Computed example of a mutant assay.
Amino acid sequence: NAINDYNIAIKLNPNDPEVYYNCGIAYYDLRKYEKAIYNYNMAIKLNPYYSDAYYNRALAYYDSGKYDEAINDLNMVIELDPNSTDVYNIRGLVYSDLGEYDNAIIDFNKAIELKSNYTIGDNNRGLAYKHKEEYDNAIKDFNKAIELDPNFSNGYYNRGVIYYIMGKYEKAINDFKKAIQINSYDSDSYYFLGIIYYNIGEYNTAINNFNMAIKLNPNDEEAYYNRGNAYYDLGKYDNAINDFNMAIKLNPNYANAYYKRGIIFGSKGEYDKAIIELNKAIELDPNIAEAYYSRGIAYYIKEEYDKAKTDFKKAADLGNKKAKENLKKLFNIDY
């Protein structure tokens, strides 16, 4: 309805940049970015110094994945208004998405300089430091973001991810739990709790957290896959198969899910099925050493020794030590 009204207003007054600008915002809110950009173009054509039109067109370009165009518009906004905190922050995000983390940090620095209590700026700079693997700097920024806003759930989540990467599981668990306390719909925090509890061998607790992650985000193939791993390690193979099936349904190119399905079929003595699954895993990712090794075991049991030797050699080439041991033990081959 708003767009219809703006279109009528444009017909009545086709030289009013404000009407085009507002129509652009309406299209942007509907995620119709091309139409939004068209209207911002018209607003800028009528008023070449329309800072807000450049800024919002940059957002539409950014959300469309047109990063160079977004940066050009943001540069123009900065030229028109050098003290716009949000513009530096958005340009920093664009640079981050382009992998230009040093440029991103420069922009986040400027945004924080212009607005000292800028929670989002500290958080985003922390994410840039994370990508640069400067974890201490990242933690400092997330600490600052949390200090500025103790209810900023993303700050706890992002700091938790850093602690997880650093292997500081207790601190990570505390942060993910705090993030969930603030935002009970935080599926990612439940997911990482599941990963940590799995890594420390608490499989049932891991499953409980993956359950929550899946409940909140039923399309999370990683949560299904990792819950499947927990079920597998508990010997609950049917549950594991169901989860690997779901992971593959959501992502038909999920090589590791095919690999784990192959492992389960092999453990059940269903070697032909195992080989089919391992074939698919290898087709999707030729560098899974364990898939070649496991297929080699299946071929050996089926007495297809030449195929077994070939797979053990390939697995050994990819760094699988057990494959080298089996070549020596089963075939007296030093490899």
Rank of each mutant, 00 (worst) to 15 (best):
Y156K: 10
Y156R: 11
N158A: 11
R159V: 05
R159H: 01
V161H: 05
V161E: 05
I162Y: 00
I162G: 03
I165N: 03
I165S: 08
M166V: 13
M166H: 11
M166E: 10
K168P: 06
Y169G: 01
K171V: 11
A172Q: 04
A172K: 00
D175S: 07
K177Q: 13
A179L: 07
I180F: 01
I180M: 04
I180A: 00
Q181G: 15
Q181N: 14
Q181T: 13
I182F: 10
Y185F: 14
D186R: 04
D186W: 02
D186S: 02
S187T: 14
S189F: 00
S189L: 05
Y190P: 00
Y191P: 01
F192I: 01
L193G: 00
G194M: 00
I196H: 02
I196A: 03
Y197G: 00
Y197H: 11
Y198F: 15
Y198A: 13
I200R: 10
I200F: 04
G201V: 09
E202K: 15
E202M: 14
Y203N: 09
Y203L: 12
N204P: 08
I207C: 01
N208Y: 02
N208S: 13
N208R: 15
N208P: 07
N209C: 11
F210Q: 03
N211A: 09
N211W: 07
I214V: 10
L216W: 06
N217P: 14
N217C: 14
N217H: 14
P218D: 15
P218K: 14
P218H: 12
N219K: 12
N219Y: 13
D220S: 09
D220R: 04
E222W: 15
E222V: 15
E222P: 14
E222T: 15
A223S: 13
A223N: 01
A223C: 04
A223M: 10
A223H: 02
Y224P: 15
Y224L: 14
N226I: 06
R227V: 01
A230R: 06
Y231W: 05
Y232Q: 12
Y232G: 01
Y232E: 08
D233C: 06
L234W: 05
G235C: 07
G235M: 11
K236N: 12
K236A: 12
K236D: 08
Y237A: 06
D238S: 12
N239G: 11
N239C: 11
A240N: 03
I241A: 04
N242S: 14
D243C: 10
F244L: 12
N245A: 07
M246K: 08
A247D: 04
I248Q: 05
I248V: 05
I248E: 02
K249R: 14
L250N: 06
L250T: 14
P252I: 14
N253C: 11
N253M: 12
N253E: 13
N253I: 15
Y254R: 13
Y254Q: 12
A255D: 10
A255P: 02
A255R: 03
N256G: 09
A257Y: 09
A257R: 00
Y258C: 11
Y258G: 01
R261N: 07
G262A: 05
I263D: 09
I263F: 09
F265E: 03
G266S: 14
K268F: 08
K268A: 11
G269W: 00
E270V: 15
E270S: 15
E270C: 13
D272P: 12
D272E: 15
D272L: 07
K273V: 03
I275T: 08
I276Y: 08
E277S: 05
E277A: 05
L278S: 02
N279L: 04
N279E: 09
N279M: 08
A281L: 03
